[in-house]
Structures are given as structure tokens and as C-alpha cells.
Amino acid sequence: MQLTLEFGGGLELLCDSVKVHNVSVDMPKGAEKLIMKDLLGWVRTNLIKERPEMFMKGDTVRPGVLVLVNDCDWELSGQLDTTLEEKDVVVFISTLHGG
């Protein structure tokens, strides 16, 4: 599945300072859909190069990281259970840096 992932607010520093990543993510084995929970695991393994604790806490993003799926707050779409579709855009922005 082709997805566009964007990191901002300082999170890009965790993945070689690249803000926008066009990626191809496989569905988990035996599953019919890809949900945010799967994507977070994938990002942590494949994109985050340093200090993963700045991005995740437990099985979800660290509190203070804003997540938008197609420019919609993921708190509206079910957070970890949000279903992703082909060509979706997922944005992660840290609110924790500077002021």
C-alpha cells in the first residue's frame, strides 16, 4: 500500500531530517486491512533512526505528538484503529519542541 508520511515539529530529526517519506507498506499477514497500529510499528522499525522514545510510548505515539490522517485529527477517526487506504497521507507533528 502506497502512503505518504510527513514528520514535523522536530520529529523529522528522528528520521535523518527528511520530512516527507513516500513509502510502501505491506498489510500484516492474514489481515484484510492496514490500521494505524500496524503503521506505527512499521514506522518505528523502518523510518525512525534514533531516539524512538521521542516518537512512541507503549504501543501508541508519545503524548504530545499530533497525528493527522488525510488532514483529519486521528482522534476523530479512531486513533490506533483508523483504517488506512491507498495513497493516504499521514502527518506526525511533535508539539513538544520550543515555543
Binding site: 514535523g8 522536530g10 493527522l68 488532514d71 502527518v91 511533535s94 519542541h97 520550543g98
Partner: peptide, 11 residues
Amino acid sequence: YFKRLDYFSTE
């Protein structure tokens, strides 16, 4: 983010 305002975010 939505307004695409130009800000600096480094610790």
C-alpha cells in the same frame, strides 16, 4: 500546520 505558518522547531 494548516495555515502553513513558517516556524522553527528545534530543541
